[in-house]
Write a protein that binds this DNA or RNA. Structure first.
Length: 817
RNA sequence: GCCGGGGUGGUGGAACGGUAGACACUGCGGACUUAAAAUCCGCUGCUCGCAAGGGCGUGUGGGUUCGAAUCCCACCCCCGGCACCA
């Protein structure tokens, strides 16, 4: 509109300022946290990156907003600790190294060097003095130490068990690492193999892990953990067994439906159930053996297929339902899972869908014991699983099935036929891996002394660099004579080392503890620092870790607590899950898809500040979504306009400061509240509005000097967490004291932020017909007078008298005719 | 199948039960420029109308309410997790 004489000013050029400030901040140790400082501590943690190669947008998306959050709390006066490290062990690094024919150590540490530079280019306030790398012997030494402590307490044990075997990665996997029957990493179909493996007793903590009351976590994550742990209340009940030559006299089942126990018409054992070979009668032996063999060969995918029809074979044996004395046939079927409950299921076709399907297929009886409300006694066409009245259940007839549950449970306990119990879906954590790039398990096998833990003072058991590490199905360390052959710590005789390594999730269990004293030699953490700084106050990271890292880490923390190492029951008091950032095609970003966005180029082109802000602006952080670069020009324009506002003053003069001050204080309020709720996108929108309003104010003529300075200074302070470089540069150019990142967060004055004029919305029958400017404190009578005087309202109303008027103070008036 | 989360303009997205579409991108028009870029200004949900103004609009269908994107019921679709868990 008006001819604008742009002052001859320097243009915003991120390349000129960003590196300069990064170097200055580093040289000044600006982001080094003094852990002995007495101000209120705030441990802000972002999930550590895996060292798989270059950083891409998938790394920036979680980290840039997290950095803004950490900076925000720092400016609010907290002593913020915001560390970073590298998750360096594990299959992906090892596989990548093998593919390229280089040593995993070299591959990993080269990546770390590159990633460190990339992370610094982000302008994040990471405290690099606290860096921890999980593949360092001084780190994994304490993995081993923890293992020994757990072994001492019986929390680490060894057992031969069927394990998830990935033929691609040539190693076993934890239950949590099998996704739809396939390896989480390489996608190979997982098969079952019997192996001697090390486990952690996470099940011992199942009950406590279900208590989420001591932390503030997003609901979806706690729900996922709850489902994963899968607590079920029920009873274990014994069915009588009277088979010549079989010592055992009962088969124990687990059921959540004791109320249906009179309806049992058959029994199902898992193919792997130990009683199967003993009870099978000679004429059924070959069929049973064939079935067991076929079940063993099945892949997880085949076994899990829901479309599959029920299969099973009769063993020829019978057992007795002690409640009604009925003899029922014992079958084996793979829908009974060996590891869940007791590995045996009582078949109640009338009241369980799976049992119904099984009975239908094999012509087994179906006895109704819970009557549907208007049941006429005719056969069921499907399992009835809803509540009902008990029938055909002896003395329990007539009870509601809900009452029957406890009545039968009590009766079973009285008779000694069973007991109330709780079963979990969660399995113990299998930590052995037959791979090279991990923490060696500190155990020695001696012919004389058996399993012998390596003494603490011999830690770390070092991972040899010169192993032949291509996977063969056996741990590569097994072929390294220098590693394997050792002496028994107990008797001094010849012994062999354990050659498996630990699951890499062991590393991420406690890295945030190590950050506090990464150089500490006398334990995993300096106890004094741990006492002051743990637990983590705010954790941010992806929801993909809901049932792996986040569950393991909670378990591990509770073990560390029981060892007296840390205090409190939970490691992460608050959690925020950002959404997944996807490629422009809406697909998960991956090198193989070719949809990876490299931040380095974007930083070159737009600057780190613009790129950070853009990632925060594209949408709500928790939602993620496809990344498209298109909108970034809006961010560039905003930063450039902010720059121009800050380096060139408007025409100062006698002017009303009220509007300007209201703008400032309203914006402070909005940005502060948005930051508290991780709403970076709307915070940036508020700052954009401020820039737009300030530009208009400058155009409009004379501006009050004090109000202008307050506005610009506040704006820079509000921008500092989002775009640290430009904020620092402009702060300096305006002659303010270094560093902006050490300034206090601005406070808003509610009186100044308040509007003194409102737009009164005038509705007739709920439809907006007019908007009238009115004083903010307008009362109902005045509002009504204004509204009824409106020409629009009169036209809508016609001859009708208003029947009712609804007034929402300061907002709206609705005239109902 | 079960458990979460979500469906709003051409696009990303805003909206304590109270102006739907803030903020931005794109597009269109204009200013500046020899020209372009950059910058600045205006318009930009659909639709009827010359206009004033009206109608329709938040996945679908109902309901509650003076008033619903928001609350309730039923359903459809998308994303994530779990999946024969007895």
């Amino acid at each position: 509109m008006t001819q604008q004489t742009q002052p001859k000013t320097e243009r915003y050029n991120p390349r000129e300022i960003e590196e300069k400030w990064q170097q200055r901040w580093e040289a000044d140790g600006l982001y080094t946290t003094d852990l002995s400082d007495t101000r209120e501590k705030f441990y802000w943690l972002t999930m550590l990156p895996y060292t798989s190669g270059d950083l891409h947008v998938g790394h920036w998306y979680p980290m840039a907003p997290s950095d803004a959050g950490a900076r925000f709390y720092r400016m609010r006066g907290k002593n913020v600790f915001y560390p970073i490290g590298f998750d360096a062990f594990g299959l992906p690094a090892e596989n990548a190294a093998i593919k390229r024919g280089i040593h995993p150590r070299k591959w990993t540490y080269d990546n770390i060097d590159r990633m460190r530079g990339q992370l610094k280019s982000m302008g994040a306030m990471f405290d690099w003095n606290s860096e921890a790398i999980t593949a360092d012997p001084e780190y994994y030494r304490w993995n081993q130490w923890f293992f020994l402590k757990m072994y001492e307490r019986g929390l680490a044990y060894r057992k031969n068990a069927p394990a998830n075997w990935c033929p691609g990665c040539q190693t076993v996997l934890a239950n949590e690492q099998v996704v739809n029957g396939a390896c989480e990493r390489c996608g190979s179909t997982v098969v079952q193999r019997d192996l001697e493996q090390w486990f952690f007793r996470i099940r011992d903590y199942a009950e406590e892990l279900l208590d989420f009351s001591k932390m503030d976590w997003p609901d979806p994550v706690t729900t996922m953990q709850q489902n994963w742990i899968g607590r079920s209340e029920g009873i274990e009940a014994d069915f009588g067994l009277d088979i010549p030559g079989v010592g055992q006299t009962a088969i124990r089942v687990f059921t959540t439906r004791p109320d249906t126990i009179f309806g049992v018409t058959f029994m199902v054992l898992a193919p792997e159930h130990p009683l199967v070979p003993q009870i099978t009668t000679p004429e059924h032996r070959s069929a049973v053996e064939a079935y067991v063999e076929q079940a063993r060969r099945q892949t997880e995918i085949e076994r899990l297929s829901t479309e599959r029809e029920k299969t099973g074979v009769f063993t020829g044996a019978f057992c007795t339902n002690r409640f009604n004395g009925r003899q029922v046939p014992i079958w084996i079927a793979d829908y009974a899972l060996a590891w869940y409950g007791t590995g045996a299921v009582m078949g109640v076709p009338a009241h369980d869908e799976r049992d119904f399907e099984f009975a239908q297929k094999f012509g087994l009886d179906c006895n109704v014991v819970i009557a549907p409300p208007d049941w006429d006694g005719s056969p069921l066409t499907g399992a009835y699983i809803e509540p009902g009245t008990m029938v055909n259940s002896g003395q329990f007839d007539g009870l509601s099935n809900n009452d029957g549950k406890s009545a039968i449970a009590d009766y079973a306990e009285q008779q000694g036929w069973g007991a109330k119990t709780v079963t979990y879906r969660l399995r113990d954590w299998l930590i052995s891996r037959q791979r090279y790039w991990g923490t060696p398990i500190p155990i020695v096998y001696c012919d004389a002394d058996g399993v012998v833990p390596v003494p603490e003072d011999e830690l770390p058991v070092r991972l040899p660099d010169d192993a032949e590490f291509s996977p063969t199905g056996e741990s590569p360390l097994a072929k390294h004579a220098g590693f394997v052959n050792t002496t028994c710590p107990k008797c001094g005789g010849p012994a062999r080392r354990e050659t498996d390594t630990m699951d890499t999730f062991m590393d991420s269990n406690w890295y945030f503890i190590r950050y506090l004293s990464p150089q500490y030699h006398d334990g995993p953490v300096d106890p004094a620092v741990a006492r002051d700084w743990l637990p983590v106050d705010q954790y941010t990271g992806g929801a993909e870790h809901a049932v792996m890292h986040l569950l393991y880490a909670r378990f591990f923390w509770k073990v560390a607590r029981d060892l007296g190492l840390v205090q409190g029951d939970e490691p992460f008091l608050r959690l925020f899950n950002q959404g997944q950032i996807l490629g422009p095609d809406g697909q998960r970003m991956s090198k193989s898809r070719g949809n990876v966005i490299a931040p380095d180029e974007q930083v070159q082109k737009f600057g780190a500040d613009a790129f950070r802000c853009f990632l925060m602006f594209i949408g709500p952080w928790e939602e993620g979504g496809p990344f498209r670069l298109e909108g970034i020009s809006g961010i560039e324009r905003w930063l450039a306009r902010a720059w121009n506002l800050a380096i060139a003053d408007p025409a100062f003069g006698d002017a009303d400061a009220r509007d300007l001050r209201r703008l400032t204080h309203k914006t402070i309020r909005r940005v502060t509240e948005d930051f508290e709720g991780f709403r970076w996108n709307t915070a940036i929108a508020a700052l954009m509005e401020m820039v737009n309003a300030l530009s208009r104010a400058r155009e409009a003529g004379a501006v009050d000097r004090t109000a202008w300075d307050e506005a610009i200074d506040s704006m820079l302070l509000l921008m500092a967490p989002l775009s640290p470089h430009i904020a620092e540069e402009l702060w300096e150019r305006r002659g303010r004291p270094y560093s902006i990142h050490q300034q206090r967060w601005p406070a808003w004055d509610p009186g100044l932020a308040k509007e003194d004029e409102i737009t009164l919305i005038v509705q007739v029958n709920g439809k907006v017909r007019d908007r009238i400017q009115a004083p903010a404190g307008i009362g109902e009578d005045d509002a009504r007078r204004l509204a009824l005087a409106s020409e629009q309202v009169r036209r809508q109303l016609g001859d009708n008298e208003p029947r009712k008027v609804i007034y929402v103070p300061g907002k709206l008036i609705n005239i109902v005719a």
